[in-house]
């Protein structure tokens, strides 16, 4: 089954995040990888090593862009200079779709460099969806919105997170990057059923999936991306692809990064789940 319209009708399998400690290995050994996910912001520069490395990667591999600073949930409007730089990068990478987070991150020009949680109300969903639409119109590439891990909830919220996410993506007519680790982390921090979450989002809009590891503290889970994927997250992944079908999947590993082969091997575990729960029909 091909992927859906929110990842531009492509058929991508298991990807790996492109990270600095692996550059030399990848450029030298040229491992077989279906695609690499890049953090857009690392390459939204005017020159130098980042772009040279990217061009070398693009000669060999397919690349998908993943952003961390569009901040669809900011009360402030989208940053036009940021969008222009992002569009230049989109042209360079020819990314079939791009993703960023359902969060806010700056206010009045002060940036947190974090993915901050939103209050879940209809007014906020409408505002956020409008900004996703604006970005999608400007960038001319499908956008997938990713759910974030959260450690706080607002008294002012009037919807569940999955209701809010569904409202935003339906109104914006965009895709979802469903991060099943984030769903699991938030479910433990806010005491909801993660399976209820994945069963109640529009499955036809799942353009990409993230899996990752986290850290457990006595009072909460933290989305640290520094461990192998734990079993409960794989279970949630299995349920998600059963519902959404064969979907481009990426393992995130951003801290205490092991060798490339170790990261890739962990990512390829997803293949077993894809074959078992979402086989591609002939």
């Amino acid at each position: 089954m091909p992927a859906n319209k929110f990842n531009n009708f492509t058929d991508y399998g298991i990807g790996v995040g492109l990270r600095v400690p692996h550059y030399a290995h990848i450029l030298d050994k040229k491992p077989v990888v279906d695609w690499f996910e890049i953090i857009s912001e690392n390459f939204m520069v005017d020159g130098g090593r980042p772009l040279k490395v990217l061009d070398q990667i693009l000669e060999q591999y397919r690349v998908v862009q993943h952003g961390v600073s569009m901040y669809f949930g900011n009360a402030d409007p989208l940053n036009k200079e940021h969008l222009k730089k992002l569009k230049r990068l989109v042209k360079r990478t020819n990314t079939p779709w791009l993703s960023d987070h359902l969060c806010w991150g700056s206010v009045d020009g002060s940036y947190s460099h974090d993915l901050l949680p939103m209050p879940y109300t209809m007014a906020v969903a409408k505002h956020t969806a409008e900004k996703v639409r604006q970005a999608q119109d400007f960038l001319e590439v499908p956008i997938c919105v990713e759910n974030v891990s959260s450690y706080a909830e607002f008294h002012q919220s009037k919807m569940t997170e999955w209701e809010f996410l569904s409202e935003v993506v339906e109104r914006a007519d965009c895709g979802m990057l469903l991060d099943v680790n984030n769903i699991y982390v938030s479910s433990q921090n806010h005491e909801f059923d993660p399976f209820e979450y994945v069963r109640n989002v529009p499955h036809h809009r799942i353009g990409q999936i993230h899996v990752a590891g986290h850290t457990r503290y006595p009072t909460h889970l933290l989305d640290t991306h520094d461990h192998p994927v734990p079993d409960p997250v794989w279970d949630l992944y299995a349920e998600t692809i059963k519902l959404g079908g064969h979907t481009a999947t990426l393992l995130e590993w951003d801290d205490r990064i092991p060798s490339f082969d170790e990261v890739h091997a962990e990512a390829l575990k997803a293949n077993r789940f894809l074959h078992e729960h979402a086989p591609v029909s002939a």
Binding site: I39, N42, V68, H113, L222, D223, T224, D226, E252, D255
Partner: peptide, 14 residues
């Protein structure tokens, strides 16, 4: 230090 690019990512620092 390595002169690599900074670590923009989506993980939480603990």
């Amino acid at each position: 230090r390595d002169s690599g690019m900074r670590a923009e990512a989506s993980n939480t620092l603990d």
